[in-house]
Structures are given as C-alpha cells and as structure tokens.
Computed example of a mutant assay.
Amino acid sequence: MALLSILHYPDQRLHKVAKPVEHIDRQIRNLVTNMAETMYAAPGIGLAATQVDIHKRIIVIDVSDVRDTLHIFVNPEIIWSSNKRKVNEEGCLSVPGVYDGIERAEQVGVRALNENGDLFELECKGLLAICIQHEIDHLLGKIFVEYLSPFKQMQIKMKMGKLNHAIL
C-alpha cells in the first residue's frame, strides 16, 4: 500500500469536479485502500479522491473513536437531507490548521456503491452526516472554506500560501 500526496488549498485541482466510477476493479479497490491508509496516517476522518488529485467519485470516512469503522462510498449521492441545520466546526486535510463553523444538514441519506460494486443506502447523523456532506463537496469541486466570508477566504489563502511556500 502507498500513502498518497494530499493537495492543499488553494490548489486549483481541488476545484475539478470528479467523474463517476464506471467499473469497480482491482485498480479502484487499490485506490480505496491507499486513500484509507493516507487518511489514517494524516490523521483525518475523511478523504475524497479529489484531494489526492484523482478525480473519481470516491470517498473514505472513519469517524469512530478507535478508527476501526471504515466507510467506503463510490459514486455517492445525497438522496435526502433534514431541514434542521446546525453549525459545526470543520477542518480539512487540504486546509491544515484551519477550522471554522459551517452550517450543514443535521441528517442526510446517502446512496453509493461499496468497494464490491454493491449499491447501498445509509442514514447518517452527527459527525458522519457532516463528514459525508464535506467530502461530497470535494467531489463537486468545493472546499469548506468557500462557505466562509470573502475576507476569511482571503486570510486563509494567504496563510496557506505562506505554508505551501515554506514547505517548498
């Protein structure tokens, strides 16, 4: 297995819209494994393929306390969301060190394929619902900081520019 490089905001590749996975094969299953390994090593609770510069509709999530409940979603789509919304603090592996309050639906229903190509539906609430919405945003080319004010976005871009420059 291999750790993948995570793109950092404001990298424009994070804005590419992911394409549906046409066929789940060994290559896709290997990608899922590598994404999970990368997410756990980061450490994070969710990762979209877009964040590792692979523009396919795949996300992996593990919000469990002991990090032993990996959820794999291929071609995920939110099929319903509750009217009740809540502001929660979010962060992102593509925007390290930045956290802010984002309003999202408290509950969502998601339909996706698993790593074997089987269709399933899942009702999500709490942290899992937040994470699903956050990661699906990535597949649509949207980063959580884009929900913030233009001023905050500018501050974050400047901070990330300095961080990315320091890494180089």
Rank of each mutant, 00 (worst) to 15 (best):
E103L: 13
M154F: 10
P20Q: 14
Q133W: 06
G126L: 04
S149L: 08
G91S: 08
L31R: 03
M158H: 15
K142Y: 03
A48Q: 05
P10I: 00
G109L: 02
V52A: 00
K56W: 07
L168K: 08
S82M: 10
L7E: 00
P10E: 00
S64L: 03
G91I: 07
K19D: 08
Q133N: 15
L70N: 07
G91P: 06
D68I: 14
G91W: 02
K159N: 14
N30D: 03
L31M: 13
S82I: 09
C92D: 08
F144T: 01
A41H: 09
N83Q: 10
N88M: 15
E77Y: 02
I136T: 04
R111K: 14
E121H: 03
E121G: 05
I167E: 08
C124N: 01
N75I: 00
A48F: 02
A2R: 12
E89L: 09
E37Q: 11
A41W: 08
R57W: 01
G141K: 02
I59N: 01
I79C: 10
G44L: 03
K152F: 07
V98L: 02
I78D: 05
L93A: 06
S149Y: 04
H134L: 07
V98Y: 09
R85L: 09
A129T: 13
A166R: 13
I54D: 01
D11C: 05
K157F: 04
Q107N: 12
M154K: 10
H71N: 11
Y99W: 06
L4I: 09
Y40S: 13
R26V: 12
I78V: 14
E89K: 14
N114T: 12
H23M: 14
M158D: 10
C92A: 14
H71I: 03
E146F: 09
E89R: 10
L127P: 11
V108I: 05
P43M: 04
K84W: 13
R85N: 08
S94Y: 00
D11Y: 03
L122M: 13
A49M: 07
S82W: 01
T69W: 15
I6C: 11
W80L: 14
S82P: 03
R85Q: 15
K125R: 14
P10A: 00
F120D: 04
P150I: 06
S64D: 08
H55S: 05
D25W: 12
T69N: 12
P20N: 14
C131V: 01
V98R: 06
G109T: 04
Q51I: 02
D100G: 09
L148C: 07
A41M: 10
M35A: 06
S81E: 10
